[in-house]
Structure formats: structure tokens, C-alpha cells
Computed example of a mutant assay.
Amino acid sequence: MSKKKQTLYETYGKRSVDIIGSAAALIAFSPILVATAVMVRRKHGKPILFTHERPGKDGKIFKVYKFRTMTDARDAEGKLLPDGDRLTDFGKQLRRTSLDELPELFNVLKGDMSLVGPRPLEVYFLPYYTEEENHRHDVKPGLTGLAQISGRNALSWEQKFQYDLDYIRHITFLGDLKILLDTVKTVLGRKDVVEEGGAVLVDFNEERARKWQEEGRSQSHEVH
């Protein structure tokens, strides 16, 4: 897959939709944002927001904003406890309902992200993409995307990336609108969410490294 030429919508319309849509959503969801922030402060302490580096368009690193879902609980030596021990019941609920991702609307307003696009993944995944999969960084990452309405975390990594690439090949206003509307339906219906105690989602880098080992390939042959 070669880097495709942008359409008029991608060049001029998509950013306008992002600004108007994210600003309107921040106003509409402001009571939920405030209420969630208060609860996060009570349950998890300060800071309310969690920031983490993610690769954006053309691989440029930016900081994504989310509500904290874990505490800063530490052991006797002052080291942070494992993630599973710090994730609270309230934090699990935030993740199930996707409320923890609402602050990403600020990323959209800033221009780091788009309302619709491939979801931004961990920076340490970068060396494990194939050349074709790396094209998911040809566009801005999204608050939601085609993969999220097509199976969410019930999909395999390869399926997620294929949906991302399919989206990049056919970006349209009506397509983005449909994805946004379907996202609302998916989140409200909690469709295709893997619950705690269900299927284990393996980190992409671990899964890809295991497959390469089974196929007798080395990581150095796949880094792009």
C-alpha cells in the first residue's frame, strides 16, 4: 500500500469537522466530564488526568489525555504495585463505558488527533509493524475508528490493522459520520467488550515477536 493522495474532504473538511465536533462534544458532555473528574479525584487522588505518549500522524509522538483508572498504590519499598492491583472497580467501569477516553476530545481540538481514525497505540509497538501496517500512521489517530465499530477488542491485532488500512483507503465525510453514529450505538450497547476475567488480550509486540520466532524470523528483518 502506497501513501495515497488526500481527497478534498481530507485536506479541507476533516479538520473543520474535528474542531466543530470536538468543541460541541466538550460542551455537551461537560456535566459528565466534571462529574467524572470529581469521582476520579475522590477514588484515585491527583492528578485527575493520565497522559501517555502515542505516535500520531507520520509517527510524530504526542501526549494523549485520559482519566486515571488506577491508583498510585505502592509496596513497602515504594515501588508501584502491578497494574492489576492498582486498577479499581471504578476504573474498570470507566474503561467499560469508555468514559476514561473523553479527555481525548481535547487532543482532537488541539489537532493531535481526529474524531475518526486508527486508534493511537503504544510507542513501543512501533518496531513490530509490517511496512503495510505502518501506513496506519499516514493519517491522524482517531478517538474512534472502523475497527472500534467492527469488533473493538474482540478482534485480533491483524483484523484491527486491516480495518485501519481499509478506512485510510476510503476516507469520506459520510463514512466518518457513520462511524461516529455506530460508535455511540456500540458504546451504549457495550458491544464486543471483553470483560474482566474473559479473554486475555496479549500485547501486540509480544504476539508479533512470538509469531516471528515460530516462523524463524528476526525482529531486525521487520523493523521499518
Rank of each mutant, 00 (worst) to 15 (best):
V123W: 00
Q6R: 11
K185S: 13
E132H: 11
G145V: 00
K3P: 08
K4V: 02
A37V: 10
R119C: 03
G84A: 15
Q162M: 03
L201S: 14
I48N: 03
R68D: 01
H224S: 08
G78Y: 02
V193A: 07
I27T: 12
D83V: 05
V193C: 10
Y124F: 12
Q219T: 04
G91S: 15
G59F: 09
L87F: 06
L87T: 11
D176H: 07
K191L: 08
D112W: 08
L188K: 13
P118T: 09
E206P: 02
K14C: 04
N205T: 00
G59H: 10
K46I: 07
Y12M: 08
E207T: 02
V184N: 06
L201H: 14
V17F: 07
I48E: 04
F204D: 01
G13H: 03
A24N: 01
H224Q: 14
F29M: 15
H135N: 11
I19S: 02
Q93N: 12
Y124M: 04
A209Y: 07
Q219I: 08
T36G: 09
V34N: 04
K66T: 14
V202S: 05
E158N: 07
V193H: 06
V139G: 00
H137D: 05
Y12P: 01
P127S: 03
V187Y: 13
L49A: 03
L80E: 02
Y128N: 07
K63D: 06
T71C: 02
L99K: 11
T144E: 00
E77A: 13
L181R: 02
T71E: 12
A154W: 02
L181E: 07
K211A: 12
L165E: 09
F173S: 04
G216V: 01
A23H: 01
P141T: 06
K57A: 12
T172N: 09
V187C: 09
G151Y: 07
D72H: 10
A37Q: 00
G142W: 09
G117S: 03
E206T: 03
R74M: 10
Y65F: 14
L94F: 12
M1Y: 13
D176F: 01
H137K: 01
R210P: 04
R86N: 04
P47Q: 05
G84E: 14
K60L: 07
F62Y: 10
G84H: 14
V64W: 03
I149R: 02
E195Q: 15
P120H: 05
I61E: 06
L26C: 13
P120W: 07
D100N: 07
P118F: 01
L87P: 05
L8D: 15
E195F: 15
V194H: 08
R15G: 11
L33M: 11
R152S: 05
D192C: 14
V38D: 00
E206K: 15
G91M: 06
T172E: 11
A25W: 12
